[in-house]
């Protein structure tokens, strides 16, 4: 259980500053919390509520709407196997059975060593590469029982540590708007007139 670290509060404030209303940063901040702790803790949600000016219940209401946020510890790697139509047509169900056997856990379960959590997922937007799965939101395409085993073995042996960050980290690149380059937020209460370039004159 942890509030956001000082460094993450700084990041959080940078993120908040990009939006006309702080509430908009709720989901990015929840990701930041999950990145920090591997899942979203109650303390982090209460902290985020303070930062964005919402109540903790509202932050929890938002967080629990979205699939990616976990409220209990999960494995270092979360493997999501897609089961929607295109993948189902290409054998996703067999793959799921195989995965459960290989890992010795049911869907939603975490291996005893705490390394891998297995989940059934819905469409991951890689339908032509069915069946597909994501490990911490990194794709494996046209997965076969053999390639699944190889993936698990690689994860266990730490061979994918560079490629796949621990659960909670989604994008490893953050947007940065340089202070001297930003056009600034346009909040409804501050901006009342048309943007300068719309006055009909050529802009260049």
């Amino acid at each position: 259980m942890a509030r956001l670290t000082e460094e993450n509060v700084r990041l959080a404030q940078e993120i908040i500053s990009r939006y006309p209303k702080a509430r908009s940063a709720t989901i990015p901040l929840l990701h930041l919390a999950q990145e920090q702790d591997g899942y979203v803790t109650d303390d982090a949600m209460a902290h985020i509520a303070e930062l964005v000016g919402a109540s903790p219940a509202e932050v929890y209401g938002t967080a629990s709407f979205y699939e990616m946020f976990k409220f209990h510890p999960v494995g270092r790697y979360v493997i999501n196997i897609c089961g929607t139509m295109s993948c189902a047509l290409m054998g996703a169900e067999d793959l799921m059975h195989h995965a459960e056997e290989k890992l010795g856990v049911r869907m939603g379960g975490t291996t005893d060593d705490g390394l891998i959590t297995l989940e059934r997922a819905e469409c991951q937007a890689a339908c032509t590469e069915a069946p597909c799965l994501q490990t911490n939101y990194r794709y494996s395409f046209r997965v076969t029982p053999e390639s699944f085993d190889a993936l698990v073995d690689d994860l266990r042996a730490g061979r994918l540590a560079d490629e796949i960050p621990p659960h909670g980290v989604v994008a490893r690149v953050r947007q940065h708007i340089p202070a001297d380059r930003g056009a600034g937020v346009h909040a409804p209460e501050d901006v009342k007139s048309a943007p300068a370039w719309l006055d009909g004159k050529a802009a260049l």
Binding site: A46, S55, P56, A57, E58, Y60, F65, Y66
Partner: peptide, 20 residues
């Protein structure tokens, strides 16, 4: 706003924040 909808779809529930 001490109560909110939580979860989604058929699992949507009205709830408070844990312990609040």
């Amino acid at each position: 706003p001490l109560i909110s909808f939580t979860q989604r779809g058929n699992n949507t529930q009205v709830m408070t924040f844990p312990d609040e």
